[in-house]
Design a binder for these strands. Structure first.
Length: 491
RNA sequence: CGGGGUGUAGCGUAGCCCGGUUAUCGCGCGUCGUUUGGGACGACGAGGUCGCAGGUUCGAAUCCUGCCACCCCGACCA
């Protein structure tokens, strides 16, 4: 074993970092809290991005791009938003460096190049976008505006973890403008639904959809919708959010429109985003102690083919046998990697593709050639079979589908096993230590929420849409509650 | 921001307490050969401002001072 992976049960956090390392997804950069996303990791992100982008476009959105810098005066316009993000903003104050007269060969900030107005490196783009929308919107005929951007943002976090929370991260942020409240709410819900669909169908990751409580809400939003997923250690990960922003930004940036009657009104807004954090979710949902496990829908390589041969003659024979099969697979949309790198031996390749989570592996050597067979192995269950070469294409397609379904089912079963209804706060306090989701009644107050957080470190992940809406009494205060909410410790 | 840790070749490390030839070992890298069904082996070879800056000393990776960077734990976290 060239590279060891710490077992999950020994140190989950170390395991997570080891997976990222052995699968070559990312590494720490020389900048605190920032990461380098390596080609294989980025290939997965591109798959995520391409699929989401398609889904956004199918629902009428267009991509655009807004600047990374936000003048401070714009940034502070929406008070709550500004306040919420102020503590973690990188700020540009100068625009030039100069040679340091005291230290030859060194540079210093040119004191004469101080900016008149500081520029905030966007932690999110509502401000710059709404200041732009003001110019674009005069009439109801200009609405709705349905725009998304793929961008990087910076949040100067105290404590970072690869993919889950980095100082700079990649994401998409949708920013829409509507004539009516109902339409904006429908948009918010639609996009949260798209996130849920993407999580479940492509990431094979079950999620709960719901609303955030007021204290967990996005700064500047009237309502925050979210998808919440359970990781293998029983902790919750907020995987995506969709915000109904009301008229807060329209008021802050004075964006009004004339309706059909010629009456002026403020525009209704939404914003919604998912980030490279999804990579973390993907890793922690499916991977095992051997490495990454990827759902076929997002795997950059679906099938790795490892030829086993002595000498060029055998390799040529394998190539000519597999040529048509590879072409057929590819024309079926299967991403095939035929690995005839002579510098690596088969055993090395097996381990490598396992670590990288490639869903299906084919191996073929002289023994198989003689019998017209090929070995097929699936990553999720580690099963290996020898099948007829003629069944190969069919079997690969079948397996890819089965793996996708199986991964989802496995994750769903895990979640079911680790979620429970609970009515006693005492019981909750002891059980929450081991992770898992808890459906409990809550009196709806921020005070109770805060108390639970203080005493157990668990938070209300969301007020879920699904499930019974039976009334009850708060597990902490005994006051009335309209429905159960999800408590969990979160990333 | 508090606590802890680390910094020596691309990576991981030994040496540091107790200063002294040419800075240790493994992986990786290069050449050649043998290999190839679960992370091959041999031979030869290349690769170092010992984080940075001062200081002490005949002599510093090692001792002292200052600085920087990153990691881990905590607080914080839409």
């Amino acid at each position: 074993m060239a590279e060891k992976i710490t077992k999950r049960e020994i140190d989950y956090s170390k395991w997570y970092l080891d997976i990222i390392k052995v699968a070559e997804l990312a590494e720490h950069s020389d900048v605190k809290g920032c990461m380098v996303i390596k080609p294989y990791g980025f290939a997965i992100w591109e798959k995520i991005k391409d699929q989401l982008d398609k889904m956004f476009k199918e629902t009428g959105h267009q991509n655009a791009y807004f600047p990374i810098f936000v003048p401070k005066s714009l940034f502070e316009a929406e008070e709550k938003n500004a306040e919420g993000f102020a503590k973690e903003c990188a700020v540009v104050t100068h625009h030039r460096l100069m040679n340091d007269p005291e230290n030859p060969g060194k540079l210093m900030v040119d004191p004469n190049a101080k900016l008149e107005e500081e520029l905030v490196v966007r932690p999110t783009s509502e401000a710059i976008i709404w200041s732009t929308y003001k110019k674009w919107i005069q009439s109801y005929r200009d609405l709705p505006i349905l725009i998304n951007q793929w961008a990087n943002v910076v949040r100067w976090e105290m404590r970072t973890r690869l993919f889950l929370r980095t100082a700079e991260f990649l994401w998409q942020e949708g920013h829409t403008a509507h004539a009516t409240k109902a339409e904006a709410i429908a948009e918010t819900e639609q996009m949260n639904g798209i996130y849920a669909k993407f999580a479940e169908e492509f990431m094979a990751m079950p999620v709960f959809q719901g609303l955030k409580t007021e204290s967990e809400r996005f700064a500047g939003a009237d309502e925050t919708y979210c998808i919440e997923a359970m990781m293998q250690d029983g902790k919750a990960l907020q995987a995506g959010t969709s915000h109904f922003l009301g008229q807060n930004f329209a008021k802050a940036f004075d964006v009004k429109f004339a309706d059909k009657e010629g009456k002026q009104d403020y525009v209704w807004a939404t914003s919604w985003g998912v980030s490279t954090r999804l990579m973390g979710a993907l890793i922690m949902t499916h991977s095992d102690d051997l490495g990454l496990v990827l759902p076929p829908a997002l795997a950059p390589i679906h099938v790795a083919i490892v030829p086993i041969y002595k000498g060029d003659d055998q390799l040529e024979e394998i190539k000519s046998k597999l040529g048509p099969i590879i072409s057929e697979l590819r024309s079926n949309g299967v991403a095939v990697k035929f690995d005839d790198d002579d510098n690596k031996r088969p055993g090395w390749k097996f381990a490598e593709y396992e670590a990288k989570g490639v869903p299906v592996r084919l191996a073929i050597g002289p023994r198989d050639l003689e019998n017209g067979k090929i070995e097929i192995a699936r990553r999720d269950t580690q099963e290996k079979n020898v099948i007829d070469l003629s069944d190969c294409v069919k079997e690969v397609s079948r397996l890819l589908e089965e793996i996708q379904t199986n991964l989802y089912q496995k994750a769903l079963d895990f979640r079911e096993k680790n979620i429970q209804m609970i009515d006693s706060y005492e019981e909750f306090k002891s059980k929450i230590e081991n992770g898992g989701f808890f459906l409990a009644h809550w009196d709806g107050t921020a005070e109770t929420e805060e108390l639970v957080k203080k005493e157990t470190k668990a938070t209300i992940r969301c007020i879920p849409f699904e499930g019974d809406k039976e009334e009850g009494v708060c597990m902490v205060t005994g006051k009335p509650s309209k429905q159960r909410v999800i408590f969990a410790k979160a990333y």
